[in-house]
């Protein structure tokens, strides 16, 4: 049939154009980085077996800066004081064992900047003493790590002290608090104070990192999943010279973070997948009916 032949020509040129401006152009614009699936092949496994009890005994070396909320250990400084002192707020260690790679953590305790491939790190090297000491502390952190961890907890622990997520109401110093404004003046003093603290923290952070790390609200739409995956696994391999450190997430840890980023960056995904078939179904029926009308109108015309 002639119509189908014409359609084939139209579809052919459309597909060639699509292929050229989408997959092909993007393959030429961005170099392809093949990740290692969060196995960190450049870090050698020490083979040392850590002893959680010894790690627990040595944890004071950590808690002089870090808190471990799940064990009732408060951080010695709040986020504001910590950022004034170090440039960035040290993470709470409650969930660390659940998110980060074991051999990465052992290497990190011995030399943070080296393991993170960062130019500088507020945390000094050698805090755990020997390699065995590092393995002990990591074993302890693993022993206290929760079995289940939510996407948001994964995000706040791994990313949330440098990156805000305003669509998720997250700032570098925590969730935006629910406050009540003054109904007579419209002022909200508590919220204004909180915002001032965020601003101060961000200024310190920008000094520490060289720039303010971007808000990650819709990074899930601004970068491909492959990009985020390979970038988080090894920032220098994807964007040479970036201030972003390698954080050492496990594959599962990254998936949790990714789930959170998708929840704030593409919140309509579930609704889209639910509505799609109905709309398409409607138009299939519409088209069938229209075909019937067309055939009845054109009957006997040729």
């Amino acid at each position: 049939m002639k119509d189908l032949k014409i359609l084939a020509v139209v579809v052919f040129f459309t597909l060639v154009t699509y292929w050229g401006v989408e997959p092909f152009a993007h393959s030429q614009m961005h170099k392809h980085v093949e990740g290692h699936n969060f196995t960190y092949p450049d870090i050698k496994a020490s083979g040392l077996k850590g002893d959680p009890a010894k790690g627990k005994a040595a944890i004071a070396a950590c808690t002089s800066c870090h808190g471990i909320k799940s064990q009732g250990i408060k951080a010695p400084m709040d986020a504001m004081a910590a950022s004034a002192a170090y440039g960035v707020n040290p993470p709470d260690l409650s969930n660390v064992g659940a998110l980060f790679d074991t051999k990465y953590l052992i290497a990190f305790l011995q030399n943070p900047a080296h393991a993170a491939k960062a130019k500088k790190m507020a945390m000094p090297a050698g805090m755990a003493g020997t390699a065995q000491g590092a393995a002990d502390i990591v074993a302890y952190l693993k022993s206290i790590a929760p079995k289940e961890i939510s996407p948001k907890e994964a995000f706040t622990t791994a990313c949330g002290r440098c990156h805000a997520d305003r669509y998720g109401k997250w700032t570098q110093i925590g969730d935006v608090p629910k406050t009540k404004g003054n109904i007579k003046t419209g002022n909200d003093v508590e919220l204004t104070k909180f915002k001032m603290n965020v601003a101060k923290y961000q200024d310190k952070l920008a000094d520490y990192m060289g720039k303010l790390p971007p808000d990650l609200s819709i990074i899930a739409r601004a970068r491909s999943e492959h990009y985020l995956k390979t970038f988080v696994e090894d920032p220098q391999a994807v964007l040479k010279g970036t201030a972003m450190p390698r954080v050492g997430l496990t594959k599962e840890g990254f998936e949790k973070v990714d789930a959170y980023l998708e929840s704030t960056g593409d919140p309509s995904k579930a609704k889209r997948e639910k509505t799609g078939p109905w709309v398409l179904g409607y138009f299939v029926i519409f088209t069938l009916l229209a075909y019937g009308w067309y055939k009845s109108q054109w009957k006997g015309l040729h």
């Binding site: 709309v279 398409l280 138009f283 088209t287 069938l288 229209a290 009308w293 067309y294 109108q297």
Partner: peptide, 24 residues
């Protein structure tokens, strides 16, 4: 209605394609 009937049929096919793009 004759020309329009064919138009509407073509539009139906077009909108299947269109909403496939919108959702997927």
């Amino acid at each position: 209605p004759v020309f329009l009937s064919k138009d509407v049929f073509v539009m139906g096919i077009y909108f299947i394609f269109f909403f496939y793009l919108v959702f997927y």
